[in-house]
Design a protein around this nucleic acid. Structure first.
Lengths: 109, 109
DNA sequence: CATTTATATTCCGATATGAGCATATACGCA
DNA sequence: TGCGTATATGCTCATATCGGAATATAAATG
């Protein structure tokens, strides 16, 4: 699931599907990506139930399936809740930052 | 960023850090993972600013940095908002499901 | 039934990524 | 200054993954 969203192309597909159902061909046009690629990415997204599709003749209408995002949203919610619970003394936390975070992401040493 | 959370080991690290600051050694013990691996994963998480660290003598105290998760949360929020905006006629959507979604993720054809 | 259109699948090569090991750096301490 | 501990980095290998081309399947159409 997380892995499925780890790919930019697949997020592009989801973004495109955000504006409603679309066929594989539509996505190919919008993303400028090859048809097999789109089908494969849709396969991955479908495997984790984040998109679903219905048949319309020889076409497949894909759409986002929001409940499929639940694992992600619940994990995120739990993580941030945990963090907030443990850093509820915000002032201490901030003070801590002031003291030693003057080079946030640098590989010091 | 999404890629950083695409790895289970890194989510384990974040989960562990959810209960407060921890040193690299702590994480090695808790995750049963090698020290270099933990350091590398922490490097990835730090690169996308989802964790930060402060020095304490020769140890490094790591913690989750919630603002770093913003790209993810905003993307998620926007996607679901878009989807909801376009599928606001929920009844139609459901009816649609009833009609053709009897085999959700199967590779039909 | 043959053909065309829409989508899925397979195969292959290039590239990225994670694990393991060795090693480097940095700090504290005697 | 020399040693031990804590953490980071570099290297190599195995594997996963993406992209591309060809092909298979399925449905509509004549």
């Amino acid at each position: 699931m997380f892995n499925a969203l780890g790919d930019a192309r697949r997020r592009d597909i989801l973004d495109a599907l955000g504006s409603g159902e679309a066929t594989v061909g539509d996505l190919v046009d919008r993303l400028g990506c090859s048809q097999p690629q789109v089908s494969k990415h849709l396969g991955v997204l479908r495997a984790v139930d984040v998109v679903r599709c219905r048949a319309d003749g020889r076409r497949r209408l894909y759409r986002v399936h929001p409940p499929g995002l639940a694992p992600l949203t619940t994990w995120l919610a739990r993580l941030t809740a945990d963090v907030n619970a443990h850093y509820d003394r915000l002032d201490d936390y901030i003070a801590e930052l002031e003291r030693s975070d003057h080079r946030p992401t640098e590989g010091d040493h």
